[in-house]
Design a protein around this nucleic acid. Sequence first.
DNA 1: ATGAAAGCGCTAACAT
DNA 2: ATGTTAGCGCTTTCAT
Lengths: 346, 346
Amino acid sequence: MQKRNLSNRAISVTMHDVAKLAGVSQSTVSRVLSQSSLVIPISEETRQRVLEAVDQLSYYPNLTARSLRAQHSYMIAIMIGDISNSFYHSIVRTIQKVAHEQHYDVLIAYTEQLYENEKYFCEAMIRRPVDGIIMSPYHLTNEELDQLIKRTGASVVVLANHIDHPQIDRVYADDGQGAHEATRWLIEQKHHQRLGFIGVPAGYPPGDRRLAGFKRAVDEAGLSWNPDYFQEGDFTIESGQRAIHALLDLPQPPTAVFACNDLMAIGAINTALDRGWRIPEDIAVVGFDNIAEATIIRPNLTTVAQFPIDMGQQLAQALFERIEGVETGPQRSFEIPLQLIERQST
Amino acid sequence: MQKRNLSNRAISVTMHDVAKLAGVSQSTVSRVLSQSSLVIPISEETRQRVLEAVDQLSYYPNLTARSLRAQHSYMIAIMIGDISNSFYHSIVRTIQKVAHEQHYDVLIAYTEQLYENEKYFCEAMIRRPVDGIIMSPYHLTNEELDQLIKRTGASVVVLANHIDHPQIDRVYADDGQGAHEATRWLIEQKHHQRLGFIGVPAGYPPGDRRLAGFKRAVDEAGLSWNPDYFQEGDFTIESGQRAIHALLDLPQPPTAVFACNDLMAIGAINTALDRGWRIPEDIAVVGFDNIAEATIIRPNLTTVAQFPIDMGQQLAQALFERIEGVETGPQRSFEIPLQLIERQST
DNA sequence: ATGAAAGCGCTAACAT
DNA sequence: ATGTTAGCGCTTTCAT
């Protein structure tokens, strides 16, 4: 029953076509093809005939129809802040790999860290329900996440420290602790006394925690701190450049700078170099994330490493346990360790 | 008519709920919400009541159902080789932006440049039809692309030079020409006589063309060429490192190297630097793409710049013209210019 | 200007 | 062991 291919009309082979060719009913085809054939007995002969017909017509089930009927889309969505930040690459790649192994497709959305786009994403999920969502929300409130879950029925797992919702598993790194340890190391092992900080505006979750860890280490060492030593960026290279300019323009600049992420640290290093400062002799720089660019830049960047493959793995595993119903309990938290990697910038 | 929310069941508000609240039939709701309301007259009063009900229930149409019925998914897919190669980032971002403006969602798949994953993608498209596909195929044959179009009914646009299919628009850069010009510049302006090349195994589309452009320039200059000067990589930093090692180990190494992409060029620069070579004094390096990392590395990389935002814009525009039926003619080709950007590595 | 009804391709409950 | 039937939530005829 091949349909005409007018303009761009798809030639769609349906279960009906398969059934007709195999000489059985459409529902029998459905049974053979779904796992229900394991429960409901089907004669070997019929099964073979159906499978042959499937092969001959190269039939693929229409997942849109299946989704509608079964209320189950075999699709998961990922909401990520920034495609350009390579910290997310391995995470996305790992999730996609696991998803494909489980025969799920992956819908990816980039929010550019904008509230507007995060909202858009939530609406898109209501309009086109998926089985699971992995997200790294910045602006979304608990209330909004709650609505998301209620309206979509999807399982949700977050890559975030600051989300605390009874139905949402979270994967996170203790970045307050990571910032604290790196800063302490800068003070105790590297003997710095004047420490600068390149952060982000208050309210950006990881920024707040890293700042707190930094401050704690400074306080514990009994060092005074200068408000001018705190500069705000927005996680980009350019903002790191602006921040280091401000820092170096100070009458008494810091001797070491802790940047909230590698991208800003890289901007800082290159700009300091351009201005004739030596690194680490004149000023040391530490980043956070350990993205690929950390070993591209010279001097190589000392940084608090995250382990994105482990994160992606854990996110995907947690999500599929929820989707498949293996896990039904309350919120779980999975901490992924951090590790200070000493390179040449300190 | 709120349904029970057992386990993870979604609370789905349907058109029926809206219709009931507004005191009209479900098909009237559909008319108000779809553009058909512009054609089929609807009383202003009814329209208002429906809109109010929509608002009150915060109803969102179920796109899965709409897709099934309308044979139109409001979704496009992007198939890209490598998420880590930042050349693709602006392309993806731009496409996503345009798509969202047109109210389309975007499904992204990364193939890691593997044939197996490209095939998987095609099957996924047959199972879950989308309205349009933007892809950068490496291994897929014309025959396979033909099947893809026939089976899915989707409009297809490629980012590729080597695809020639009557129904597929292509966006491309003349990279043979780009490689030729950069090489000629190296010879004529920078007076290099011994030129190395870091390419990829034969068969990788852009690699072949860039190599051809390179060879042509070398031949035109009447320079001899040494087979040892041709090294193979795989577009990654690591392979650039291996390639430059081989080149520098030669009794008479080249004085300039043209790398097929920036990532390999960056690997080459850092490794040469580590081995004590000066750049560009001892060996000059040129890349291709102009990714963000080209200005992170010191010396900054001279490269043949592509314009990914323009590419994304053109890809999206061409695709939506096809989807919306504005354009129905045969294959179109859109060339995006290249530009040699001279920095410090030459 | 609006309602009733058919059906997109599938799953699953209900028959036999 | 298999066929028949009723939807999933929509769009789109066909009525009125």
